[in-house]
Design a protein around this nucleic acid. Structure first.
Length: 276
DNA sequence: ATGGCTTACAAAGTAAGA
């Protein structure tokens, strides 16, 4: 069994206690964090090592964004890719080899949020979001053979593509994160990489599924105006290995929470051997 | 359009998140 977790933590140093709680309760093999807001030389390595997560890849910067992948398993390789000509700490790719299953590539992404106005002409942040997705599409389209490799992509993609990935499809059609223009770009990127949406493989598209709830709601659970911004995708060879997912929405109710909930994805690698 | 909150930051108000 292999468990991969992804969580937009909104400051890893501020919420280290909450991270430890998730690691203790769910014991994922690997946890991918986004919005760590932490320079690499300030990352709390000792705390993770003490929890059994001795292998840490970071791609952070001061103040904003930042991703980290922490693991009980050693990494075979670590890659930090930059997009749109800027190093704003939004990607990590690691490879690891769980008990002889062959190397698996794990991408950890923090896609730009895109600002308020869903117009790339007037809103440079939204233009950046679209360019970021287009650059990813080009990258994946240029390496079609990768779709046959065992790969996992997780992270805060900042887009809720399906009708029931948001609390009200009608009321969010012009709200950044659910506009048709960015959903189309996300779909193009997903298609170019041959990615399979594992969360929706286990939860029917007709069912509401959220991973994020605004800080501004009086009672996030009662109003339940959530969105599914965090995702777990796999390449075709790993799809039969996916045994289940869960959104740890209980973590949204903890003290001083992140506005995102952790997502857990479980795999049984025996189901897809032999890997190519 | 939820935005009513929350974060980091050369610490008061600003930028950013989504």
């Amino acid at each position: 069994m292999l468990t991969i977790a992804t969580w937009n933590i909104n400051s890893v140093r501020l919420r280290l206690g909450l991270v430890e709680r998730v690691l203790a309760a769910f014991a994922p093999d690997i946890l991918c964090l986004q919005e760590t807001k932490c320079p690499d030389d300030r990352f709390p390595l000792k705390a993770f090592a003490a929890m059994g997560y001795a292998h840490v890849a970071t791609h952070g910067q001061r103040g904003y964004h930042g991703v980290a992948t922490v693991s009980r398993l050693p990494f075979d390789s670590i890659e930090r890719r930059c997009f749109c000509g800027k190093d704003d700490a939004r990607h990590l790719a690691t490879t690891f080899s769980p008990d002889g299953a062959g190397a698996i590539t794990l991408h950890n992404f923090y896609v730009p949020a895109g600002g308020d106005e869903p117009d790339p002409v007037t809103n440079e942040k939204f233009a950046h979001k679209l360019r970021f997705l287009d650059e990813l599409t080009g990258w994946f389209a240029g390496a079609p053979a990768l779709a046959a490799e065992p790969r996992i992509l997780v992270g805060d993609l900042n887009i809720a593509p399906l009708e029931h990935d948001v609390w009200s499809h009608r009321r969010l059609l012009k709200v950044v994160s659910h506009t048709p223009i960015e959903v189309d770009r996300l779909r193009a990127m997903q298609s170019a990489g041959g990615w399979i949406d594992v969360m929706r493989a286990h939860v029917p598209e007709t069912e509401k599924l959220f991973t994020w709830w605004s800080y501004r709601a009086h009672d996030w659970r009662l109003s339940n105006r959530g969105r599914r911004l965090d995702h777990v995708w796999v390449s075709p060879p790993l799809a039969p290995c996916s045994t289940g997912i869960s959104v740890v929405d209980a973590a949204r109710a903890w003290e001083r929470p992140s506005d995102h909930a952790p997502v857990l994805a479980h795999f049984d690698l025996r189901r897809c051997r032999p890997l190519p």
